[in-house]
Structure formats: C-alpha cells, structure tokens
Measured scan of single mutants.
Amino acid sequence: KAVLCADHGEKLQLFCQEDGKVICWLCERSQEHRGHHTFLVE
C-alpha cells in the first residue's frame, strides 16, 4: 500500500536529500524543494 502525500494526495516516491524526507512529484516541483537533490525510492 502506497503512502500518500498529505499536501497533494500523490504517492511519496522521492527522497529529498536536503530535507531528509520523502516527498511526491508535486512537492519536488514546488518552490520549497526547487533545486534540491531527489532520489526515487521504491
């Protein structure tokens, strides 16, 4: 069962290295995470 983003309802499948947390693809494109290094997690 996928864990969903509290903000967007999308699957949490990216790890943001700068923030040390898992985010969704919409979070990654938001101003908050712009320019951060993210990695796909399974």
Rank of each mutant, 00 (worst) to 15 (best):
L26Y: 11
C16G: 05
R34T: 13
C16Q: 06
E18H: 05
L14V: 08
G35P: 04
Q17P: 05
I23Q: 00
L12S: 15
L4W: 06
G9L: 06
L4Y: 12
H8I: 01
L14N: 08
C24W: 00
C27L: 01
C27D: 01
G20T: 08
V41G: 09
F39N: 12
H36T: 01
E28H: 03
R34H: 13
S30D: 12
K1R: 05
C5W: 00
L4D: 06
E42R: 15
V3P: 02
W25D: 13
L12F: 09
T38G: 07
R29N: 13
A6R: 11
D7V: 14
G20H: 06
E42V: 13
E10G: 07
H33S: 05
V22N: 13
A2G: 15
K1V: 07
I23G: 04
E28N: 05
L4R: 09
K1E: 12
K1Q: 04
L40P: 14
S30A: 11
V3M: 14
L40G: 13
W25E: 12
H36K: 02
G20V: 03
G20R: 09
R29A: 04
G20D: 15
C5F: 00
R34N: 10
Q13C: 03
G35W: 04
Q13S: 13
Q13H: 10
V41Q: 15
L40I: 11
R29S: 05
K11F: 09
F15D: 04
A6E: 06
L40C: 07
G35A: 08
W25P: 11
A6V: 07
G35T: 09
E18Q: 08
G9E: 07
W25G: 11
K11E: 14
D19H: 05
G9Q: 11
D7P: 05
G35D: 12
L40F: 13
K21L: 05
L40A: 15
Q13A: 12
Q31Y: 04
C24A: 00
F15P: 06
L40T: 12
F39T: 14
H8K: 03
I23V: 07
H33T: 01
H37K: 15
G20W: 04
F39L: 12
C24T: 01
F15E: 08
L12N: 15
C27A: 01
R29G: 07
H8F: 00
E28D: 09
W25R: 15
F39Q: 14
R34P: 04
Q17Y: 03
A2K: 14
H37R: 12
R29F: 03
K21F: 03
Q31E: 08
R29V: 05
R34S: 11
H8E: 02
K11G: 11
Q13N: 15
S30W: 01
F39M: 12
H36R: 02
C16E: 07
A6K: 11
V22W: 02
H8V: 00
L12A: 15
H33V: 02
L12C: 13
L14P: 08
W25N: 14
A2I: 11
L40K: 08
R29E: 09
W25I: 11
A6H: 03
R34W: 05
C5D: 00
D7Y: 14
E18R: 05
V41P: 12
L12V: 10
L14A: 07
Q13W: 03
C16R: 04
H36L: 02
G35E: 09
D7N: 09
H37L: 03
W25H: 14
G35K: 06
G9T: 03
D19I: 00
V3C: 13
L26M: 15
C24E: 01
K21T: 07
D7G: 05
Q17C: 11
D7K: 12
K21V: 13
